[in-house]
Amino acid sequence: MKFDLHVHTYYSDGILSPAELIDLAVKQNLQGIAITDHDTILGLNEAIVYSKKYDNFKVIPGIEFGSVYEDEEVHILGYFIDYNDEELISVTKNLRHDRINRAIKMINNLNRLDIDVTIDDVRKHSGNDYIGRPHIARALIDKGYVGSIEESFEKYLNRGKPGYAERFHLSIEDTISLIKKSGGIAILAHPGLIKNKSIVEYTISKGIQGIECIHSKHTAEDTDYFIKLAKKKNLIVTGGSDYHGDLVRGELIFGKYFINIEEIPEMRGRLYNV
């Protein structure tokens, strides 16, 4: 059973609605997906209800949290979370609110660089009580300041760049704990993008349960290395596209990066409850 365990909807920084994403997943011959929007669970019930129109297709309720450790962003995925958990609802609401405040700070930083972009320009690309850096990037593209989301991040929006502003992050330990307390499985996202690889070992020491070994931005060497590491540490091997709705270098990556969920007993048995 082919599952893409890392996709985003317009409830965070994706482009597609949950329904559009599920329809596309079926067309791409996937048997299931995990919706892992950043810091929000708002689209999960909608997605799971809509998925019932298809026989033999499953949506795993998920989330993607961002932490910072040793000045690097570390993303942690949670699978099979209870999205009715009161603590999870409260924490994600606060995180979404802080993202909006951070966006305003970043827009002010850009304005000081004589870049004419407003919160209204950004909101044209966002919705559902959420603003992320890709929304600011798309506004910069609209105004002609950059030609791509990648250029936006490289020039202005990455950590250390002139438009960047910090936001509140849960610690790695608190993120893993919150996921587990809500009944979920905690997985380290795209470790190939982490520059300081000792951080990977740190997350393992703090109780991470698996590694996203297969990812659209991993090299073949990355994939091979992290599969071997996961097996050595007796951790779950997962994979996904990290699809946001955009084409990547003119290609649709959705459907090309997946895992056979039948090979993950910790997940396979829980599919019947979603």
Rank of each mutant, 00 (worst) to 15 (best):
I100P: 05
G192W: 07
I253H: 04
I259F: 01
N260E: 13
A139S: 14
E150Q: 14
L157A: 03
K217T: 14
I208R: 09
S205A: 08
R138D: 12
L24I: 08
I89G: 00
D142W: 05
L235V: 05
Y50L: 05
Q209N: 13
S152I: 05
E251G: 00
F65Y: 15
G239K: 12
N94F: 09
I208S: 09
E72S: 13
K206G: 00
I211V: 09
S216N: 14
A189L: 07
E263Q: 14
T219E: 08
D246E: 14
K195Q: 11
R99A: 07
I107V: 15
E166V: 01
G250R: 12
G147Y: 03
S241V: 06
H8Q: 13
L140E: 07
A165K: 12
I107P: 02
F80W: 06
N84C: 02
G66R: 13
K2S: 03
N45P: 00
S198K: 15
D242S: 05
R112D: 14
Y130K: 03
K232W: 00
L77S: 04
I41A: 07
L188A: 10
V91E: 06
K256D: 08
E72V: 12
F57Q: 04
K27A: 11
K232G: 04
K217Q: 14
D246T: 03
L77D: 03
A19T: 06
S17D: 07
E87N: 12
I81G: 01
K124D: 08
T175M: 03
Q209C: 08
V200A: 03
P61I: 13
T36M: 07
